[in-house]
Structures are given as structure tokens and as C-alpha cells.
Design a binder for these strands. Structure first.
Lengths: 139, 139
DNA sequence: TATTGTTATACTCTATAACTATA
DNA sequence: TATAGTTATAGAGTATAACAATA
């Protein structure tokens, strides 16, 4: 076979990452998408509206709904009506949610380290810069 | 927000790639997975057994079944019983399938070029080598 | 009218487990 | 017994379109 193209490589490596996440986050009762939402909420350090959270995650609001449904059912977030605009829903991270985020963060770090284990710190930085450049052109 | 980690970047860039594929392959009546299967079959230059094709695509055989179902329905591949081992199914690329592969290849190339447009040839090569190293450690 | 979020629906990608036919 | 592939089922991730509530 031999010659794997760059797009195909990207796809394969990304699939491995997802695989690692699924297996490490699964025992915590989280999907990668849920863990991502927790991360954004924790980083924001304040409740976020659905539209805003979806933007940060780069998915459409409709796709966020079941993610938040699941997190709410697990008690990791809470929906609140935005007093400033009653059309809006504020997604509030609970203390359980914050704790789950910390655990998930470790799991995600481990999966990341495992995936990029063969790269030196320098190479990892290089990879990050290349991918950043690719990503940035669309933002 | 600022500090996006390497794994997250990988996920985001990969998502963009998928997005580009979906939009360019959709009008051709192909999903990215179907186009991948066509590519492997075209590269192999001979019919492949289901198990072998799944291996090349790095998915389990069960996941390949609906992909081949769809391609067969579109007349792009044909299932044949392997005369050497009647348990096995040979997936044969039809001439229509070969033509569809050529068209899909262009679409995929365009999506790839668009995605990595901001990188120089040298940077693309660098990225490819880094991802290859990551991928190779698991093979 | 425009915005926010949800309901409804659907498709892709992937997996595990159980079954059938064949070896 | 072991292998190849399918049926059955499920769970993530994603999207578009239509709608209700609110602004």
C-alpha cells in the first residue's frame, strides 16, 4: 500500500485519538463530546448560553442539546433561564461537574500523551503550530 | 479561551477535513467512507476479501458491510463468492466504480488542498512526517 | 421579524454479540 | 472448532428543517 496521503493520515490519527478518549472516558460515564463541553464550561469560569457554548465547541446548537441533556441528567450541569434574556438558557457547571471535569482532564491528558508518545517535546510543538495554522485560516 | 491543546486541535482540524469531504463527495452520491473503500480497491488493483478490505480501512468487518451494501446498490462494486474459499466474499470494483473513484479522488484532493492551503509544501511534508510517526507507533 | 432553543428526523461512523455457512 | 460475513442492536457525532417562546 505504502503511500498514505496527508488527509488520510489526519483521519487515521484522529480516529486513534477518539478511540483513546472513548476508552478512558467511558468508565467515567462521559463521552468525548460531553467532556469537551465540561472543559469549555470550566475554562469559561461562568455559565454560558447554549448558542455560545455550541460556538465554542464548533457544533450547531441542535447538536449540543443531547450533550447537555446527558450532562444534566448526571447532575454535572444545570440549565437556568437567563434572567437577562428569557429566551436564553444558561448552562451552569455544578460542583460535581467541576470535579468530573478534573477527572476527565486527567484521562484526556493521558490519552493525548499516549498518542503523541513517540514525538519529542519539540516535535509536539511543531505539530501544534502546523495544526494551529491550518485551523486558524478558517476562523 | 486561547490555549487549545494539541489533541483538541487534531480533533478540530480533522472535523474540518470530514466537513470538506462530505460537501464535495455528497453531490457524487458518496460518503467519505465509501470513497475510502473505493480508493483501497482501486489501489489494490484486484478484488479484495471483506476482511482484508476492512483491515486496510482499519474498521471491523461489520462496519464495512453497509459501506459495501451502498456501493453495490450504486453499481460501483460487485460481491462475488471467492472460488478459492466459499466462506469469503470478494469485493470487485466495476468500471463504473473505477470511474467514480477517479472523480472522488479529485474531490478529495481539492478538499485536502483547501484544508492545507496555508501550509507551504515543506510544512505539509513536515506535518505528514509527524503524523506518520504517530500513526506508525500503533501498527 | 429575528433570535434561542427544542422537537423531529436522518445519516455517518463505529462497535460488540450472536448467528449462519463453510472449512 | 475456527473463520468469514451478516443480522441485530447500539451509541456517538453530526446536520437540516420546522416550530414555540421570547424579544
Amino acid at each position: 500500500m505504502g503511500d498514505v496521503e496527508l488527509p488520510e493520515l489526519l483521519h487515521l490519527v484522529s480516529k486513534r485519538l477518539r478511540h483513546g478518549y472513548v476508552h478512558r472516558l467511558g468508565p467515567l460515564g462521559l463521552t468525548p463530546g460531553q467532556a469537551r463541553a465540561l472543559r469549555v464550561l470550566a475554562d469559561a469560569e461562568q455559565p454560558l448560553r447554549m448558542v455560545r457554548l455550541a460556538e465554542e465547541l464548533r457544533i450547531v446548537p441542535r447538536s449540543l442539546t443531547p450533550v447537555i441533556d446527558a450532562l444534566e441528567e448526571s447532575g454535572l450541569v444545570r440549565r437556568e433561564v437567563d434572567p437577562a434574556n428569557r429566551r436564553s438558557t444558561l448552562v451552569v457547571l455544578t460542583s460535581e461537574g467541576r470535579a468530573a471535569h478534573e477527572t476527565a482532564l486527567d484521562a484526556r491528558r493521558q490519552a493525548g500523551q499516549e498518542l503523541f508518545a513517540v514525538l519529542s517535546d519539540e516535535q509536539r510543538e511543531q505539530l501544534k503550530e502546523l495544526l494551529s495554522a491550518v485551523d486558524a485560516q478558517f476562523r
